[in-house]
Design a binder for these strands. Sequence first.
DNA 1: TGAGAATATTCCAGTCAAGGAATCAACCGG
DNA 2: CCGGTTGATTCCTTGACTGGAATATTCTCA
Lengths: 120, 120
Amino acid sequence: MLETFKALAEPSRLQIVDLLFREPLPVGAVAERLGIRQPQASKHLRALSEAGLVEVRPEAQRRIYALRAQPFQELDRWLERYRTLLDQQFERLDAVLEDMQTARKSAKGKANPGRRPAQR
Amino acid sequence: MLETFKALAEPSRLQIVDLLFREPLPVGAVAERLGIRQPQASKHLRALSEAGLVEVRPEAQRRIYALRAQPFQELDRWLERYRTLLDQQFERLDAVLEDMQTARKSAKGKANPGRRPAQR
DNA sequence: TGAGAATATTCCAGTCAAGGAATCAACCGG
DNA sequence: CCGGTTGATTCCTTGACTGGAATATTCTCA
């Protein structure tokens, strides 16, 4: 996970990932479309490769780079854990609101039990 | 997105995020649990705060840090785009396999039209 | 107001990563 | 086997980030 974040924490590399999502490309095409020089493109692709975000397929004298699915799946699983964050915050808000209500009047039933329509 | 990745591309900060997911904490507690010194904890929390990953709530002379949901939602939306990656790769594999088959014999129907049971 | 707790900031030194330029290496076709 | 194309590597310099240590700041409470 850390390595994935490190790899994505650089503007050119983030752009490269976006590019390669559309279609696999050789180094030259990546450099050209990003407006960077070939050696930098090569370096960034190397970094992405070492992070496992990208794979190479030699084709003639060119090297075609393509995204790998695995890191994105892992990122997805990591994020899974945090998908409950919104709900948690709503619950906390509920608690605060109820405190205020009970402080002013007396306790009543829950105001809105079905507020969130369940994500996805 | 870039700023989020930058913020998460550091071991201590990634740990802090994991910590704060469980419960909001004051600086001292973060430092103690990570085994780092208070000033570093403060610095990392500042970085996370500037990246919008975290928010502060002063409480007496302490400052309670808590995760913010928004960046995680954005990360989720960003990732959305890449959730199709697996399918794409399966399709590409299908194409290759079919090429091999038609090359050896003659064309038949698709071998397995319902392979993936639809994510989620 | 003054002491003490909790946190933030500053300064410094060491490290690392990125871009630039030049060069090297691999591979194709004739 | 040679020339040309494509990509990788090296060396260098510079800027950014990190941890350490010391210090400043903020806030509470007596």
